[in-house]
Design a protein around this nucleic acid. Structure first.
Length: 212
DNA sequence: TACATGATGCCCT
DNA sequence: GGGCATCATGTAG
């Protein structure tokens, strides 16, 4: 394992392939936010693949709109949308320019800047160990939660390159070795609900929702 | 312009 | 396990 500042940015080519492969490959990578006060980082422990044509649950099925335009752009860019009047969800575009597809980030394991992320979520983590452990899971287990922890909004981050050295929101590899991945149907959808397109790290306590 | 809906999370029982 | 807040977006009219 290498330290955070030695971690390597993922390359654009990493995302220039089928979202199902990207979703699996992203597990164990780090999502980092650079702030004036330091670096916030979380390990990707749960993702979902959303395909283009033929995936009724994907935003891409509606065709190009002002909201989902990023899905048709080049790979490695952030697609952020607002949902349920409360939450932002982060995706990364996949496949070549002109072909829609993405991966939704569903949960992170807090790695660095934990105090800051907890603060952004309105959570106290400095007390006794039991409460701390319990509250750690509330920081970024779930797509809306992790977005709030990292300050992700559509206005701020939609269309941002996630593999640019200049970006304040990046995906990096710190050498983490993935053991076992589990695959299940996706969470919270009605159409195409049976398709096994959700991926998560087996046994990781920061995975959201059901873990079987 | 109006209206229905949603890739969620939180609080209550 | 269930109810519900809350609003951007897309679609219908």
């Amino acid at each position: 394992m290498i330290t955070l500042d030695q971690a390597r940015l993922l390359q654009t080519a990493f995302f220039d392939r089928d979202p199902r492969r990207v979703a699996r490959a992203l597990l164990g990578k780090l999502l980092i936010r650079k702030t004036r006060r330091g670096i916030l980082a979380g390990r990707v422990v749960e993702t979902e693949a959303y395909l283009g044509e033929g995936d009724a649950a994907a935003h891409a099925v509606a065709g190009k709109t002002s909201r989902n335009l990023v899905l048709w752009g080049p790979p490695g860019y952030a697609y952020v949308y607002f949902i349920y009047g409360n939450h932002f969800c982060l995706n990364v575009s996949c496949l070549p320019d002109g072909v829609p597809g993405c991966v939704l980030f569903r949960a992170l394991e807090p790695v660095a800047g934990i105090e800051e992320m907890a603060k952004a979520r309105g959570i106290e983590v400095r007390r006794n160990s039991a409460l701390r452990s319990n509250n750690l899971k509330k920081i970024s287990s779930g797509p809306g939660r992790m977005s709030e922890a990292l300050g992700i909004t559509r206005e701020r981050d939609n269309g941002k390159n996630l593999v640019s050295a200049k970006s304040d929101l990046q995906l990096v590899d710190d050498g983490y070795r993935l053991r076992r991945v589990r695959v299940t149907p996706r969470i919270g959808i009605v159409k195409s609900a049976e398709r096994p397109l959700r991926y998560f790290i087996d046994g990781n306590p920061f995975v959201s929702g059901r873990r079987a």
